[in-house]
């Protein structure tokens, strides 16, 4: 009886947005009289930070600091339609809608600034800190604060914009399955190292090395929180979680966090996270959806590592100590009889 070490790898891809498209989202952007920007949505922040990312997309597009952008969501009386926050669609679908709305608002803002500076709007640019200037002549400038005031009280212009993003619906061809399920895919490759106690069947995840390709990390710290959280969920799925431990037997389902098993802080592996960016052609600043894919590759990587450690295949999730021990016993029995 011994602690046995093993290593496994898995590689995956994952589609962004609702399968087969047809999942629209809208955004409205307007400025206040003093050049702050409001983004109206009906999109839901599940705790992953959707509002922050939308603020950064709006700010980048208009050319202001993110602090000047406020996200107003999710109220169906004031926010335009959004399909919802699921299917790794938020950053990509809603982000594209916000970007389009912000581009329209920016154009009006530049036109007002052009009137104030008596130049052409196409000759203007933003500096990202709250000012608009003539390209190549930074001394000829006006603040966005003054531009918004002028728009409201002098020029009678609404600095605002509408955004709508829709990947058209695809219908699978019945006999061949020809279809367009998604426009862009995120990727990952994970190497997991485990120790398996062949006496108890217990698995210790020593480390996971996660490489994720995300399109573009719009806010790297928030990408990290999602990727690391996803990695832990993958470990939890692989080794612990189910509402029906003896499926398809319907008994013994957990009803609280004492009975429904998940790893605690002490069970989590040393986690290394590497990000690669291959910007999506149709993503806002290249972003893809990464919310779901980051939890998938750990499961097979751990299954493969467990096989590498003790030489038994557990082809049913979750890979519990009970299943490992039963497989080890069956293997030992085969050796004796074989």
């Amino acid at each position: 009886m011994a602690i046995r070490k093993g290593r496994g790898v898995a590689a995956i891809n994952y589609p962004t947005g609702m399968n087969l498209g047809g999942d629209p989202s809208q955004a409205l952007v307007h400025s206040t009289p003093t050049g702050n920007f409001m983004v109206s949505l009906s999109s839901v922040d599940l705790g992953q930070g959707l509002k922050q990312v939308m603020a950064q997309i709006c700010a980048e597009t208009i050319g202001v600091p993110t602090d000047l952008v406020t996200i107003d969501t999710a109220d169906t009386d004031t926010g335009p339609h959004c399909m919802g926050t699921f299917a790794s669609r938020g950053t990509h679908r809603i982000g594209n809608a916000v970007r389009q709305a912000a581009e329209e608002a920016r154009q009006v803002m530049l036109e007002v600034a052009a009137d104030e500076l008596e130049v052409n709007a196409s000759d203007l640019d933003t500096d990202g800190t709250g000012n608009i200037h003539v390209k190549g002549a930074p001394q000829k400038s006006i603040s966005i604060f003054d531009t918004a005031l002028a728009a409201h009280f002098k020029r009678g212009r609404s600095i605002s914009g509408r955004g709508m993003f829709l990947v058209p619906r695809s219908f699978p061809e019945t006999e061949t399955g020809a279809m367009k399920p998604a426009t862009c895919y995120a990727h990952a490759c994970v190497v997991a190292d485990v120790e398996v106690d062949d006496e108890t069947g217990e698995v210790t995840v020593v480390s996971v090395k996660n490489v994720y390709e995300v399109g573009r990390a719009l806010n790297p710290k928030m990408v990290e929180q999602q990727l690391v959280g996803g990695s832990w969920m993958g470990i939890s799925h692989a080794l612990y979680e189910t509402t029906e431990p003896y499926y398809p037997n319907r008994e013994h389902g957990g009803t609280d966090f004492n009975q429904y098993l998940m790893p605690g802080p002490g069970d989590l592996a040393a986690t290394e996270t590497i990000v690669i960016e291959r910007p999506a052609a149709d993503g806002p600043y290249g972003a893809k959806g990464v919310g779901e894919m980051c939890a998938n590759p750990q499961i097979p990587a751990l299954a493969n590592a467990i096989f590498d450690a003790v030489g038994v295949r557990i082809d049913s999730m979750p890979i519990t100590p009970e299943r490992i021990l039963r497989a080890l016993k069956a293997q030992a029995g085969e050796m004796r009889t074989g």
């Binding site: 922050q52 950064q56 997309i57 993110t66 990202g128 719009l218 790297p220 710290k221 928030m222």
Partner: peptide, 10 residues
């Protein structure tokens, strides 16, 4: 300017 920056979540 803003994209790619780890701005703290509001």
């Amino acid at each position: 300017h803003e994209i790619g920056q780890s701005r703290p979540r509001s």
